[in-house]
């Protein structure tokens, strides 16, 4: 080894970050494997529940239900649009894989919402929390997925659950950021008015800040869904099923047909989720669409109206409740 040179000290003085990480990881794997296994449990439960629901429903029933949901949230055109997209998924022959991917994405969304929205609220209330959280979020978004893919496998094993975990890492930041932003953007005078009328912090949050931030938070949900979908292909490297795996297998075997089918399936699913959440976000925006309560519109409204003709009194009571 050469002597320490002032002009180029980096020949001898280096931080052995790689070695540290490796030994830390080895230590964790040897001593805390059970702990990490325990983290799998809640994710496993939610994932299995959602996947069971989506897979056990016959495709046609599933398509009808989801289209009705789309109609309810955003009108007839959206219902029709959902039906078209989902039918094409079915005709492409990827229905089952799509449902697996959808359940992965929804599970990731569930955990992102459970963690991300409270974290966003917290960082909107304290500048210090925001300053601390921001670089972590930056790291989560920019760190190449392959870097944490391997440690995740070492700690959690392979399969769908670790797949959801890496998806959460990648998809969480926008929800935190946009929740934070949405709450900070609530006009100062509304907050002041709420305080002047004697709101507690909790009332301020529930009655003023969250409702006014809802469109921005929905945009966050939308982004989280999109990022989750884009992560699915990478996550399939650690043996996550669904459309991503089709793409990966197709590439591996140079079977461009298979890869394309999987890819198109992903795109269709992405369009479906994007439109739906965008429409929900528009609904939650306050400036437009005050045509009445949700139960007066869409299929539920139709159903209530039809039933209301025969049993008017009974349903009038129900819809009030």
């Amino acid at each position: 080894m050469s002597e320490l040179s002032l002009l180029d000290p980096f020949q001898t003085l280096t931080i052995p970050l790689g070695e540290w990480v490796e030994s830390a990881l080895t230590y964790l794997v040897q001593n805390f494997r059970d702990f990490f296994r325990a983290i799998r449990w809640p994710i496993d439960q939610v994932l299995n529940g959602i996947e069971y629901c989506l897979q056990s429903v016959p495709p046609m029933i599933g398509i009808i239900l989801m289209s009705l949901f789309g109609w309810q949230m955003a009108g007839k055109r959206m219902g029709l649009f959902c039906a078209c997209i989902l039918l094409s998924l079915g005709f492409l022959g990827v229905w089952s894989e799509s449902m697996t991917t959808l359940s992965l994405v929804l599970t990731a969304l569930f955990f992102c919402a459970v963690m991300g929205i409270p974290l966003g609220i917290w960082s909107s209330r304290s500048d210090r929390v925001e300053r601390t959280v921001r670089p972590v979020l930056d790291a989560m978004q920019t760190l190449p997925a392959f870097v944490y893919l391997v440690p995740v496998v070492m700690l959690f094993g392979i399969g769908n659950v670790p797949g959801v975990l890496v998806t959460i890492v990648f998809a969480l930041p926008p929800l935190v950021r946009l929740t934070n932003l949405g709450i900070r953007q609530v006009p100062e005078d509304k907050v002041e008015a709420a305080l002047a009328f004697g709101c507690t912090n909790r009332q301020l949050l529930m009655k003023v800040q969250l409702p006014l931030a809802a469109p921005t938070i929905m945009a966050g949900v939308n982004q989280t869904l999109m990022l989750s979908l884009s992560m699915v292909v990478i996550a399939s490297m650690i043996s996550v099923g669904g459309l991503g795996q089709m793409v990966l297998r197709g590439i591996g075997r140079l079977d461009m047909g298979l890869a394309t089918v999987g890819g198109v399936g992903l795109v269709l699913l992405a369009i479906f989720l994007d439109r739906l959440t965008q429409a929900m976000g528009d609904n939650s925006s306050t400036e437009k669409g005050h045509e009445g309560h949700w139960y007066e519109k869409g299929p539920v409204g139709l159903l209530l109206r039809v039933l209301g003709k025969s049993k008017k009194t009974k349903y009038a009571k129900k819809s009030v409740a």
Binding site: E192, P211, T286
Partner: peptide, 13 residues
């Protein structure tokens, strides 16, 4: 004490 604001500060939702 109740307050009335210059910008009205009504809740849009």
């Amino acid at each position: 004490m109740s307050m009335v604001f210059q910008s009205f500060a009504l809740m849009p939702h």
